[in-house]
Amino acid sequence: MTILVTGGTGATGRLLIRQLLEREHTVLAVVRSAERLEDEIRNHPKLITIESPILDMEDSEMAGYLKDCDGAASCLGHNLTIRGIFGPPRKLVRDAAVKVCRSASSRDSGLPFKFVLMNTTANLNRNLNEERTFGESLVISLMRLLVPPQSDNEEAAEYFRKEIGNDNKSIEWVAVRPDTLIDEPDPGDYDLSASPVRSPVFNPGRTSRINVAHFIAELLTREDLWEEWKGQMPVIYNRDK
């Protein structure tokens, strides 16, 4: 398979690239600077780096890259700096997803294009009528107001849920929702559920970035797992030891 990865130099994106390369798939990584990748990854024969801010790319250029791609994964996020959180582009995650999907729609492979969006448990899957307590709603509303990346993540997922939908013949999607992200060296056991089983605000779980990368790689490369979760927003937690 050939997979496009956006946010490839981020904390989770670089782990996803490694996971895909270890499975011997070809990876097209859209990055601002390939120098931020480890040497063994940057020089891997199955890695193609595209050094460009993704929102600066013309749709025709993106369509050219996607012509032979089977799917894409977005690990994009906002840098945790004042400029990264409050400065432009304020809708980086949503706008990048729209650009990739718009360009992927012109493919002529005969098979649906798979897109995995890394999202968050702080976002609801409104297809399942998930609800929040009053306290959770208050905190999330404040986050939406004071921390712009929250609304960006919400709008990205809503784009897939409402605009792409579950009956699209060209594009299929999954939005993966980890809880509090932590760093661990190796993949471990993790649990998946259709909706959060604990409060992301008052009783958050933990999810290692390497487990998120592992699950996304499995989704994109295992047809049985894709069929199980496509059109959904699975929640992933590290399994309690």
Score class of each variant (00 low, 15 high):
T12L: 06
L55S: 04
N125T: 02
N119C: 11
E35Y: 04
C75E: 02
E24D: 15
A72T: 03
S105G: 08
V31R: 03
S208A: 12
T9C: 06
A175I: 06
R14G: 03
S170Q: 14
V147H: 15
I41Y: 12
S199P: 11
G8A: 14
L4W: 05
E184H: 10
V100Y: 04
G87P: 10
D95M: 12
M143K: 07
E218M: 11
N79V: 00
D108R: 15
G64I: 01
V31M: 03
D108M: 11
N211T: 06
M118G: 02
N166M: 05
G77L: 09
P204T: 06
L219Y: 01
L220Y: 01
V98P: 01
N125Y: 12
D189G: 09
C75L: 06
D68T: 01
A63Q: 12
I236R: 08
T49D: 02
A104N: 05
G7K: 05
L181Q: 07
L146W: 06
D183V: 10
D224Y: 11
R18V: 00
E61T: 12
N43V: 00
A72V: 00
L66M: 04
C75V: 03
V176S: 01
V27D: 01
K230W: 12
S103D: 08
S106C: 08
D70F: 09
R239A: 08
R94W: 08
S208C: 05
K114I: 00
L76I: 01
I236Q: 07
K162T: 07
P178T: 01
P149R: 14
D224G: 08
K67A: 07
E184A: 14
E136A: 14
E22S: 13
F115G: 01
E155S: 14
S33C: 05
K91Y: 13
I164G: 05
N168F: 02
E184G: 06
L138W: 15
R161K: 12
P149K: 14
L128R: 15
V176I: 10
L76A: 01
N203D: 11
G8P: 05
L219T: 00
L138R: 13
R36S: 11
G205F: 05
G71A: 04
T207E: 07
V31Q: 03
L55N: 06
T12H: 05
K230C: 02
S137G: 15
F86Y: 15
T12C: 07
I54G: 02
T49C: 08
T2H: 14
N211P: 04
P200Q: 10
R83T: 00
S170M: 11
R14Q: 15
L181R: 08
G84V: 07
E136G: 12
N238M: 09
D183T: 12
N211Y: 11
P149W: 14
A104R: 04
L111Q: 07
I236Y: 10
E40D: 15
L225F: 02
L181W: 09
S106M: 08
G84T: 10
R126W: 12
T2L: 10
Y190F: 15
L55E: 06
I171R: 10
M57G: 00
I182H: 09
F113E: 06
L16N: 11
T2Q: 15
A217C: 05
H25C: 03
A156G: 06
S103N: 10
G71L: 02
I54V: 09
E61P: 00
D240S: 13
P53K: 10
P45E: 13
L128H: 13
